[in-house]
Computed example of a mutant assay.
Amino acid sequence: MTITFLGKPTGGAAKLPCYSFRVPAGFPSPATDHLEGDISLDDLFELRAPHIYLVKIEGDSMQGSGIFSGDLVIVDRSREAEHGDVVIAALNNEPVCKRLHKRNGVVILKSENPSYPARYVLEGDELLIWGVIRFSVRDHAQ
């Protein structure tokens, strides 16, 4: 797996229309009478917050959690990583995206693809949690 750090988002905060109905996976036509208002993706994802950064994921080890190769993930450095969180971390200076398991003093970094084994963090290993993934964005035109 390869992780590309894209850093802090820049640019303006465009407002997009937000409709009040749920969209089925068919072919509905959004009507203006269902327009709830405008929403800013910057506000929704807290993109301007100093503790948020972006990372591009390469590899298929997290596809079981809905994170696929080429996805952009929004990472929060301010959240304390807890058992079950998907994190961006450095294990012995190697950046990884894995699900964190912490139980009874044992730390495991788990892939969400059965083709990849879990990685137990051993006594001599250095583990630095760089942040908790809050959201992912996928380009469906690929």
Rank of each mutant, 00 (worst) to 15 (best):
F135I: 00
L72P: 03
G26A: 14
T32N: 11
K110I: 00
L54Y: 08
I108H: 09
V75K: 05
V96M: 13
I3S: 00
C97R: 02
F5L: 09
A13P: 00
S115L: 14
I133Q: 01
L127R: 07
W130D: 02
A118Q: 12
I133Y: 01
C97G: 11
D33S: 14
Q63S: 12
I74F: 04
G70F: 12
S20K: 13
A25H: 08
P28E: 10
F135G: 00
R79M: 13
P95T: 06
N104K: 15
E94L: 05
I67V: 15
Y120E: 15
K102S: 11
R99P: 06
Y19R: 04
A14S: 04
D71M: 08
S111C: 09
E126G: 02
G70R: 02
L122E: 13
V23K: 06
L127F: 08
K98M: 11
H140D: 01
K56W: 06
L54P: 00
E82F: 05
T10L: 03
V23S: 06
R99V: 13
R134E: 08
P28Y: 13
E46L: 06
F21W: 07
A49Q: 12
V106G: 00
R79W: 03
R103S: 12
R138N: 06
M62C: 11
F45M: 15
G84I: 14
